[in-house]
Nucleic acid binder design. Structure first.
Length: 439
DNA sequence: TGGTGCTATGAGTGTCGATT
DNA sequence: AATCGACACTCATAGCACCA
């Protein structure tokens, strides 16, 4: 069998993830054919040649002898390239993230020119230097990752990376707390952070301001429209914006309208949008459930916060720190006077009624046939279920769309019930309990 | 103390709308 | 018509915080 597959051009290799059973290899061939109209051809070392004759032969063989379901793999598409530079990116929390700039190279169907190196320790661990030839691949078929350095090809001219001691954007000192991996800029009003804050505030899951992306924000800061914080957004005028490079009356009108629309978002979104450390979507929703508004939240004693389920000392402290700062309190005042809704009537606590999916934990991977993630999530929650972000023993169902990620492997490993995307959508409509398959 | 889940960050492609 | 920016998708990984 091994020779048979080898003759077909399949390769068997020994390292890395991506274990696939023969059935999966064949399935992959067919999916490829569906998408591209022909069977897989040679791509960067991954050789699969299947004629229609052979196709039948493989299928026949497998159905007669299921014990041939051995682990075979595609060769992980790995290529080498050169690290041209390592640059620092600054996020909204002030974190300095080193990113490798690579000689552009094709990996698994797309051109990769950058890869995040996460932090200083990671660079040290892998000993990555500027000028090094490195092996890269795409983790989970998407994210470029530097796997290792080819040290044999070192010439001695490689430059070791040194984390700067001042912020590359604002020149303030940076600090790295003892025991932490992340280095941060110390200046709370660093422009890079302002940029990040605005982006976060405007993002879809926060205040959802359409038309305000990275480039626009940079421009607005450079032109002085934004200089303090997110409240500056609400002072912008159509006529002034329309004067900007690349903006016309149409764009300016749309942008101002989008900003206007953001004044009426649910409280949990506003809390999330403020960008308090350790307060993401989930924690923001918990806080919005407990309190009627941002102002009330700003006055809650630490002790009380800590008593809330899922909120511990660190998160409580972080919230307390945020509201102890004058500039943040001013920000909230400014938002309020701009007309942003900072208060929400408490809804009547709904009776916890037993629903079809009550107590069930769902996780989603891949793309669903007709709905997106948020829609699927809303449906699950409306039926009493919960949606988690990673597969664990507590997961009841994994919903699998096309092009699933590593969550599927994990689910198989743990014996979690797998529900196909189509199947899920039918369940949602007919209000039934997923059956799914066990691997 | 370990398992689990959340937060923060970053990457690529294709599509669509607005500007020039 | 060409170009550019924004957005909608999706996912990995590290680092932590929380909780039992």
């Amino acid at each position: 069998m091994l020779d048979f597959l080898k003759n077909l051009g399949f390769k068997v290799i020994q390292h890395y993830k991506l274990f696939r059973e023969i059935g999966e290899v064949i399935k992959y061939c067919f999916e490829w054919k569906e998408r591209k109209g022909e069977f897989p051809y040679e791509t960067d070392g991954m050789v699969i040649k299947v004629s229609s004759f052979v196709e039948q032969e493989i299928l026949g063989a497998v159905s007669r002898s299921p014990r041939w379901a051995l682990a075979y793999k595609f060769p992980a598409p790995e290529v080498t390239t050169v690290v041209k530079d390592i640059q620092i990116y600054i996020g909204r929390t002030g974190a300095l993230t080193p990113v490798a700039h690579l000689e552009p190279v094709e990996v698994d169907g797309s051109i990769v020119s950058r890869a995040t190196l996460h932090n200083e320790d990671e660079i040290k661990r892998k000993d990555i230097r500027i000028g090094d030839r490195v092996v890269i691949h795409k983790a989970g078929k998407i994210i470029p990752e530097v796997i290792m350095v080819i040290t044999e090809e070192r010439t001695g001219n490689e430059i070791e990376f040194v984390m700067p001691i001042t912020c590359p954007r604002c020149s303030s000192p940076v600090y790295k707390p003892e025991g932490e991996a992340v280095t941060r800029c110390t200046n709370p009003s660093c422009f890079a952070r302002l940029e990040g804050n605005i982006r976060h505030y405007a993002s879809r899951d926060a205040m959802d301001i359409e038309g305000l992306g990275k480039a626009r924000i940079e421009q607005l800061i450079a032109e002085g429209f934004i200089n303090k914080d997110v409240s500056d957004l609400y002072d912008m005028k159509i006529e002034e914006l329309a004067e900007l490079d690349g903006m016309g009356l149409k764009s300016a009108t749309n942008l101002v309208k989008a900003i206007e629309d953001s004044k009426d978002r649910p409280l949990k979104r506003l809390i999330y949008a403020l960008g308090i450390r350790h307060v993401g979507e989930h924690v923001a929703a918990i806080l919005a459930d407990h309190y009627t508004g941002v102002e009330e939240l700003s006055r809650v004693p630490l002790k009380e916060l800590q008593n809330i389920n899922e909120i511990g000392p660190k998160v409580a402290a972080s919230i307390g720190e945020f509201f102890s700062r004058k500039d943040n309190l001013l920000l909230i005042n400014r938002l309020k006077s701009a007309g942003v809704k900072v208060y929400e009537e408490k809804k009547e606590k709904q009776e916890e009624k037993q629903q079809i999916w009550t107590g069930k934990q769902f996780v989603i991977t891949g793309t669903l046939p007709t709905m997106n993630r948020n829609e699927a999530k809303a449906i699950i929650e409306s039926k009493g279920g919960k949606v988690g972000s990673s597969v664990s023993k507590k997961t009841d169902f994994l919903i699998v769309g096309t092009e699933p990620g590593s969550k599927l492997d994990k689910a198989k490993e743990l014996g979690i019930t797998v529900v196909k995307g189509e199947e899920f959508e039918v369940m949602a409509k007919e209000n039934t309990v997923p059956q799914g398959m066990l691997f």
